[in-house]
Write a protein that binds this DNA or RNA. Structure first.
Length: 245
DNA sequence: AACGTACCCTGCCGGC
DNA sequence: TGCCGGCAGGGTACGT
């Protein structure tokens, strides 16, 4: 489920529930996850996010670093199945993750820096600028590269390109300055809107193009197309997002 | 260095 | 109802 907006929403919940609390116990239900017992007794001093990484800072200088990947999430009431539970006094956070692709590990500040250091610009940070691409790969594929731009996933890549009226197949480095600026604004707008809507955007609003193949474009009525790029679905409007311009 | 592909896992959905 | 193939919002380890 989670791309940057969903992770941001979850981080706010985790922060509200956990910050300042002492971890009273951990429960690892999935042997694939390895967490040190020394987690218990530590106090959670901050809960933050970088791209799609959840960073839970502990009072001993270490961090619990979580990546949700495809199906990970935290609940505060015990779900049917979960991989990990963090108990913190009266509050518990349960890491559920059907596909078990997510990660949770304890890292030093140095390791954390190594992970975040590889990531590109944070689109919701102040002063965010989309750096011109140098890659010849399709712009949709480039948007998913976390080293170029951090936090955009498959849904918001399609959504942003639709907003910016750019064909997802265009070689990224061919975008001119005007297109880049439009794309930059489109990314920020798409992500901010999603954060503002909360998780309801998945239920109620749906997306402009994502998962809407064969349905009419909201802007021009043309049929939305689905193509596959780098083994992932891309959705776009062939009329609004024309290849040449 | 930069690209494509395979892979990690499981659940769900549509078609038969 | 049951089985099966295909698909899924992420990222990394490889090979070329």
């Amino acid at each position: 489920m989670p791309e940057l907006p969903e992770v941001e929403i979850l981080v706010r919940q985790l922060r509200a529930q956990l910050r300042g609390r002492k971890i009273t116990g951990i429960e690892v239900r999935d042997p694939k996850l390895r967490l040190p017992d020394s987690l218990a007794g530590r106090r959670i001093v901050a809960v933050t996010r970088r791209a799609k990484h959840i960073i839970i800072a502990l009072d001993d200088g270490r961090y619990l670093l979580v990546h949700l990947r495809m199906t990970g999430w935290f609940e505060f009431a015990p779900p049917k199945r979960y991989r990990l539970a963090l108990h913190a006094g009266e509050v518990s956070a349960y890491f559920e993750d059907d596909r078990r692709l997510g990660e949770a590990r304890v890292v030093s500040g140095e390791e954390l820096a190594r992970v975040t250091g590889k990531l590109g610009a944070e689109p919701l940070a102040r002063g965010f600028r989309l750096k011109p691409f140098t890659t010849p790969r399709p712009v949709k594929v480039a948007l998913l590269d976390q080293t170029l731009l951090a936090g955009v996933g498959n849904i918001y890549a399609s959504e942003s390109l639709w907003r910016a009226r750019i064909d997802p197949r265009r070689p990224a480095r061919r975008l001119d300055a005007g297109e880049l600026k439009r794309l930059e604004r489109a990314i920020v707008a798409a992500l901010r809107k999603a954060v503002a809507h909360g998780l309801r955007i998945f239920e109620v609003q749906r997306f402009a193009v994502y998962d809407r193949a064969e349905e009419p474009c909201r802007r021009c009525g043309s049929r939305i197309r689905r193509i596959v790029q780098a083994q992932r679905s891309t959705y776009f409007c062939p009329r609004c997002q024309s290849r040449r311009r």
